[in-house]
Design a protein around this nucleic acid. Structure first.
Lengths: 376, 376
DNA sequence: ACGATAGTTGAATCTCATG
DNA sequence: ACATGAGATTCAACTATCG
């Protein structure tokens, strides 16, 4: 994109989002109606925890006779599967409309509704990126011994389309998981203890989600300052975590009790300060250093010989930062690496090594040294 | 059910199944056509591992340049999502017809197809009893760092309808799981080692399922002598396990190579005696806690300062569980510990301390507290 | 024989900025 | 829209080789 186009885009798109969005507010309205009034292509991420359509039969009691406080609220009653299906497709269609082209959606559900949700997501042209399993460390047992303990819920993460871009803070997730890639199965306890909102000793909301779950989702898939919409806000877990993490939020919720509890909760939430908010950056977004710059600055002298880790391949550094192999092939550190290995691609920074004071080291260490010396 | 009704049922139903079913055989035909020729209400359980419709893009290579052997077989290619949807509904409708009223179906899939499958299952009047997650202990990583590691697959277990009865061997499952209710998340390694069928050193089938998975399913949801149908038989994992467990099986498979491998495999399988059944046990994964999990769960707040035991080094906790030193170095608790000490390695859990109510404590104590609070 | 080390592999929707 | 080139990117389990 040229500079001119960038300016054009900024002129057209920016004011819409800045002026009209009800940032950091709860809209106390019907979910679909409220979404209809939001401008198109204005939201960075949607997190949705829609009604599960649980279809519970009669009352459920534990083996000791005590009553299980199930989800029997009116908002979870749908006359039939097809009514639920229609409702799902309606709110998802609005979600698609108001998301930015590079936005993304997360939806959580159980086996009662998640297949209908996922199917609708695909039919609407969203592109599923992962399904993620929330493994509950302390699920409610199956009191009757009739099935497997229902010990997990499923989340779907989808972008706007097959070719659409999306935000994924890969490094942050890897750091969060002790330097291993974050997997698609996450373990958290169900929401309880002091985190669980109560009024007169009774839980305010039947399905309050743990903040840890939202923390991981927002950290992984949004940037500071992004706008996160939760169309089924409940008691505002999404809002509370978004505020802590320096993201804007919009909540839609009808019920008085939930709205009141959410407001109180979010007001009390404390944003993290800037330095704590900083996360491990992917080298992608870190400043780029060209290999030639290291040569220019004397970190490597033209004429020096680089080798791979096993000293199988050798190449000469030339004045312009290109390499030359023994057999006369030339190219950038990446190109020559892939040529010599006969591989489709090669990261020259980690492939090529030089003889330093402490033995054979990847040239990437020189880049790190250079960055430390030059970055503020 | 009264005695009279039982006799009536036996008179009418039993001969049909006994005479016409091609027990313990592979039908080398198209899946839907072969099912059409099976009598109605004759099968106790169906296990199905249909094509996932992966829709892979171009080639994929590992960071070391090696090539990833993807599923590119014709049987996984469909022209569009709606064609796949239609195919799914067709074979599921036949499945519903041939299952006994008290029968059940299991289907395995990934996020590519499982939502379409689950949605069709519900529309056809099946009643979902559980969704079960197969957590892979050794999944293929996400080589490009673009998403979460796709570390699980999903299974759906459904009965013939809301009021239908079904087989669930609750006690067997509880025994198998060290006297704890079996949960809906199961951990197995992917199929490999000696179990993985090979011909001339090459895997026979790209997606052979582990026998442990089928073992648990058949043990949980069938009785000895039951008839289990697998409409996507592949190399016959279902048949081999059914034979071991004393269940009848029927397999449907088109490909010559798969059929030949399955025949040989099942012929070699040995039925277990009773005592052998009780020795199987579930692998219990040791609880691992990443440092970031403590941050997510509020055991440490981003912004808090950690020090070593002598308060010589200081570091700031950031939102993703990484640390930042006074001089701007960053990394995981282990990495930064080794950097600051100029040591080759460091156990961050014992190196870093925080100021707790009882003075300076290693952060490992927080991990212990977390484990106590969350492990059953 | 046994331990250490290197090599291989598994249902995968797997880059992005620039021109 | 498509081509180009820089450069970022992997975990656990099993198998083969070597000393």
């Amino acid at each position: 994109m040229g500079v001119l186009e960038k300016i054009k885009k900024a002129r057209v798109a920016a004011p819409v989002a800045a002026v009209e969005l009800p940032l950091d507010q709860i809209l106390q309205r019907d979910c679909i109606a409220a979404m209809r009034d939001l401008p198109a292509a204005s939201i960075d991420m949607i997190f949705a925890d829609p009604p599960y359509n649980l279809q519970l039969g009669g009352d459920l009691s534990r083996p000791d006779g005590s009553h299980v406080d199930a989800v029997t609220d009116d908002w979870d009653k749908f006359d039939s599967l097809s009514v639920y299906d229609k409702f799902t497709r309606e709110w998802l269609a609005e979600a698609k409309r108001i998301l930015k082209p590079n936005g993304a959606i997360w939806v959580i559900g159980s086996y009662h509704n998640i297949f209908k949700v996922g199917s609708a997501i695909q039919d609407l042209g969203f592109w599923i990126l992962n399904d993620v399993v929330w493994r509950k460390s302390n699920p409610m047992p199956n009191f009757k011994g009739t099935r497997f303990t229902n010990a997990h819920e499923t989340l779907i993460w989808a972008s706007m389309g097959e070719k659409a871009r999306y935000t994924f803070n890969y490094r942050s997730m890897k750091t969060l998981n002790d330097e291993l890639q974050m997997r698609s199965d996450w373990e958290f306890p169900v929401c309880g203890g002091p985190e669980r909102l109560k009024k007169d000793g009774v839980k305010v909301h039947p399905t309050q989600k743990p903040e840890a779950l939202l923390y991981r989702i927002l950290l992984a898939c949004t940037k500071p300052g992004d706008v996160v919409l939760d169309p089924f806000f409940g008691t505002g877990t999404t809002g509370a975590v978004a505020k802590r993490l320096g993201r804007h939020w919009i909540g839609i919720e009808r019920e008085d009790d939930y709205v009141a509890a959410a407001r109180e909760r979010i007001d009390a939430a404390l944003p993290l300060d800037e330095s704590a908010l900083t996360t491990m950056q992917s080298p992608k977004s870190a400043p780029k250093v060209a290999f030639g710059v290291l040569v220019e600055n004397g970190y490597l002298t033209p004429g020096v010989v680089l080798t791979d880790a096993r000293r199988k391949h050798r190449a000469l550094v030339r004045a312009d930062g290109s390499l030359e192999s023994v057999c006369g092939q030339t190219g950038s550190i990446h190109k020559l690496g892939s040529l010599l290995q006969n591989a489709p691609a090669c990261n020259g920074w980690t492939f090529w090594h030089h003889d330093g004071p402490d033995g054979l080291k990847p040239i990437d260490t020189l880049r790190q040294t250079y960055l430390l010396a030059t970055q503020p």
